[in-house]
Structure formats: C-alpha cells, structure tokens
Design a binder for these strands. Sequence first.
DNA 1: GTAATTTGACCGTC
DNA 2: GACGGTCAAATTAC
Length: 289
Amino acid sequence: MKHQQYNSRCVPQSSASDHRSAMKEIARGQSLVTQLRAIVLPALQADERSELVAHMFQNILDCSSKAMAELHMHQSPCPRRPHDDDDVLVDDKKRVKKISSVDCKNEEGVTTAKPRHQQKRRRFDDSVSLETPVPHYDGRQWRKYGQKHINNTKHSRSYYRCTYRQEQDCKATKTVQQQDDSSGADHTLMYTVVYYGQHTCKDNDGVNSSPDDSETNTRSSSDSQSSISSTCTDPCDNQNQTSLHDNKPIDDKSEKLVTKDMYEPFDTTAFAPLDLDSWELDALLRFGA
DNA sequence: GTAATTTGACCGTC
DNA sequence: GACGGTCAAATTAC
C-alpha cells in the first residue's frame, strides 16, 4: 500500500527503513481516520457534539501529522534506493527524482525570479499522499485548474489549488488520481491524493493551518477532511461525474442548515447531511460496510 | 453576471 | 522528444 511520499533525505540504512515503516503506518492511520470521519461527521446532527467530534478528529490527525513531520526531520539527505519506490506513493516515478531548484541564480549569484512556470516539477519532499475513497472530503476549498492524462494510467489526474490562492497567496495544491486497480473485488474506488505545499490561507472553515504549522499539519487538515462535493471529473469516471464545484456546499439547504459559527473548525460541507454524490456515497457505504 | 471547470497550448525538466 | 505542471480562453453552471 502506497501512502507516504518521502523526501530525498535519508538516514542510516536500518533507521531509514524504520522511519519509512513508521511513516507508512502513520499515513495509513491518517487515511483510515480520514475515511472514518467522512462517514461519521455527515451523519452527526449539527450540535455541540458534532463539533467536539470534529475537533477530536482534527486533533488525531494533527498528532499523526506532527509525528510524520518529526520523522521527516530525522531523515538525512541522500538518494533513495530504487526499489524503495515500491512503498512510496507516487505513480509517477519521475517525481522521486530530485526536483529542480526553485530559484535561478545568475552569474552574480543573484536570484532571478522566473515570471512563469517556476517549478514544473514539484518538490518531492514537500508532498504527502493518501489513498482514500473520498478524495474531495478534506474540508479545504480547492479550485481545479487542470486535468491531464498521465502515462501508463487509466485515469487522468486532476490538479487543484487552494481557492484562496489569489486573495491570500496560499500555495497549497493537490492532485487527485483514481487508482488503476481501484475497482477490485469490493469495487471500492480508491484515489491517490497528493498534497503539495501548505495552506497559508485563513480558510473560512477555521481549520486554518497557521504559517508555522508543519506541512504535514496542513496536510492533516487537507487530507483529513475532504469535501463532500465532488470534483471527480475524470472523463474516464463518467459514473463519478457530478458537481463541478469542489467543496461548495452540497446544496442550498445544507448551506442554510449549517451555519458557519456552528462549525467553526471545519468547512461546512464537512457537516453537510448525507447528500453525497453517488460515487462518494457509494465509496462511503462500501467502506463502511 | 459571476464563478468554477474544461481543455488545448505552453513551458520546464528529464 | 516525452512528459508533467500550469496557464488562460472558452465553456458551463449557478
């Protein structure tokens, strides 16, 4: 099971292996908590208890995120062995390679900013991935800005950036890709969600990740909650095609029912009644079954 | 009318 | 040259 992307730093052989194993387990736990929350929260009534439950979920995810960050920090820089990729997330092995520097320096060593396309290959060590049947239920507001077919994959990859990118210069992005083998025996659709960067925005949901939050912390709020509204718009996923508005309220009713004040810690969509898009509902039911 | 998504093109990296 | 990430005009949804 591929869960966590590791940065290119490494530690002594055995230690690195231990770290990877630990990180894998933590990521797995995060994924499970995420999925559990996706099931529990929408089913809860809008009262103080649901808020408490939401807080508790968030705390759990924050803890694991911090643990993940700690493990990250204890890894030292050196290349990974090729077959380590087996337990690394990413379908795209090229990403494992060193990502180019963000800044370009001229002869005087002065950093020159590129006006556009500064970073075609993302920093691999600045990402966290999850496998989840509910890739959009993460409580953050994302805007889709691209979709691409990726080589050797059945389904195209969707690219999202934080809705508040412009207003608040939030650099967080994520990619969502349905796994090729996601329709296994139990027919559960699984998606690989990779989060890049951290939310610097003060998200409306109040779960904001402060600038000093670890990247994984951001991710915890990101990968942990996913919006119930669907943005699964892969052409290949016709059965999944539903709302095009990621993280928008499920419907007007739910938007009216759940006030912002009531659900400060999370995006209101995270508490929307079970009015899920069919594919999400299917995923939740299957997972919950 | 506004906002979000789609999609082809562009660009950087490998 | 292939590939992946992003841009931005066109399209669609609300």
